[in-house]
Amino acid sequence: MNDQLLAVVSQYGAPALFGIVTIAAIGVPLPITLLLIVAGSMISQGAMSLWGAIGAAGAGSVLGDQAGYAIGRWGGPAVVTKLSGLFGRRASLQTMEAKAKAWGGPGIFITRWLLSPLGPWINLVSGTARYPWHRFLFWDILGEITGAAVYISLGRFFSDRVMALSAVLSDLTWAIAALLAAVILGYQLLAHLRRPRVQ
């Protein structure tokens, strides 16, 4: 499947990139980071334009994110719970909603590119939590354009090492996610240990 997607982007360029990132932003797990890196490499080969690639990736991602937000907002919790099950994740809706509210705009921004596996879930719960649409749109566009620009530029710079670069970025994303989890869990442990005990 990944090979076919990469071949399609390699052959058809920006329009294919737009279609695939739109589907991925709705929640289908696809190797978007690798696709953006490959697009960057194609730019350095003269097979794609820089602004065309950033525009296609940014516009496709924002479109998919907005669809996710709309599903969350107007589809209601029942649809979101069903979708969560379909995509293999049954996280507690209330927990995710609370996180979306607590993280706010910066949370939306960071899950567009640095912690991108969380992006589709944040879209859905931002909708169910009725996070203001204009703010969601602002942080969404900012994050997606940043992500597209960063990964495409990296691909352009390391254009002859796309697979290894993709592996580095994938591992770094998980390392950052694990570190974030460790900080949150460590804080909870510390708070528990400092709590005065009732005799």
Binding site: A7, Q45, R161, V162, A164
Partner: peptide, 24 residues
Amino acid sequence: HVRQIRTENEPIHGWMSVPFIAHT
């Protein structure tokens, strides 16, 4: 993987086009 970037050549995959392989 960072060490691989510096030392190893990119393996050829079925999805790559010939100009892509030529470039890498």
